[in-house]
């Protein structure tokens, strides 16, 4: 069934792009919540909590997202849990993003100058108050540029959800390609679509970085 690219195909791709955005938001919210908890655990006063959260980060950062994806989608059903592609992709991305955002945010919390902690302690604020009223507001400013930069990684990484059959942008491209067999054209369109989603985020992150006046490089998983 060879044909040429028409408006219906483009509409299908647009729908896929919408799911890419949706999945990115799920990953950002889920991974953000988990990452925040991880960041707090990493600076906890309890050694065991620090060690456990550190181990989680090491383990996840040492595993490819693709393998986590396969583990949740193909690994859980034989054990008696049924998982939809959306659930598998959302859960995998949450687990993965949580580890990376946790590290970024731990770095931000720890780069709040030491005297700020001491001053807050000197004012007899409790540990919770110190964190909520003194440290976190300053950490948020430090964390914003690398977090926006990491959102680019989230958008790109949602393309791996295609391997569990979730129809986002990359999968939509594969499906259309199966019908038309014009791989170069279709994947070029897909690449341009991802670029259109990611480039504004990259630029925003660079601008924020320049404004905050620190030329630190943020790590970007491929």
């Amino acid at each position: 069934m060879n044909g040429s690219l028409n408006a219906n195909h483009l509409l299908f791709l647009a729908q896929g792009a919408l799911w890419t955005v949706g999945l990115s938001l799920i990953a950002l919210v889920g991974g953000g919540a988990l990452g925040f908890a991880i960041a707090l655990c990493r600076v906890s006063g309890l050694r065991a909590v620090r060690l456990a959260s550190g181990a989680y980060v090491q383990l996840i950062q040492g595993t490819p997202l693709l393998v986590i994806m396969f583990l949740t989608y193909f690994g859980l059903p034989p054990l008696g849990f049924s998982v939809s592609p959306l659930a598998a992709a959302g859960a995998s991305l949450t687990i993965y993003v949580g580890a990376y955002l946790g590290e970024i945010w731990r770095g931000a919390i720890q780069s709040v100058p030491r005297p700020q902690w001491e001053a807050a302690e000197g004012l007899a604020l409790s540990r919770t108050q110190r964190m909520a009223k003194v440290i976190l507001p300053q950490a948020v400013r430090i964390a914003t540029p690398p977090t926006v930069g990491f959102m680019v990684q989230i958008v790109k990484n949602t393309s791996l959800a295609s391997v569990v059959g979730f129809v986002e942008l990359a999968r939509a491209g594969q499906i259309i390609n199966n019908a038309l067999f014009e791989p170069f054209l279709i994947y070029a369109i897909i690449a341009v679509a991802y670029f259109a989603l990611c480039f504004p985020l990259s630029r925003l992150s660079q601008r924020l970085e320049r404004r905050s006046g620190r030329g630190r490089t943020t790590l970007m998983p491929a």
């Binding site: 393309s159 791989p183 994947y187 690449a191 670029f195 990611c198 480039f199 970007m220």
Partner: peptide, 17 residues
């Protein structure tokens, strides 16, 4: 910018095809 703003999966397909 072209590489950093597109997924590796799509880059692999583009090179392959």
């Amino acid at each position: 910018e072209a590489i950093r703003n597109t997924p590796l999966l799509v880059q692999i397909f583009l090179v392959y095809f």
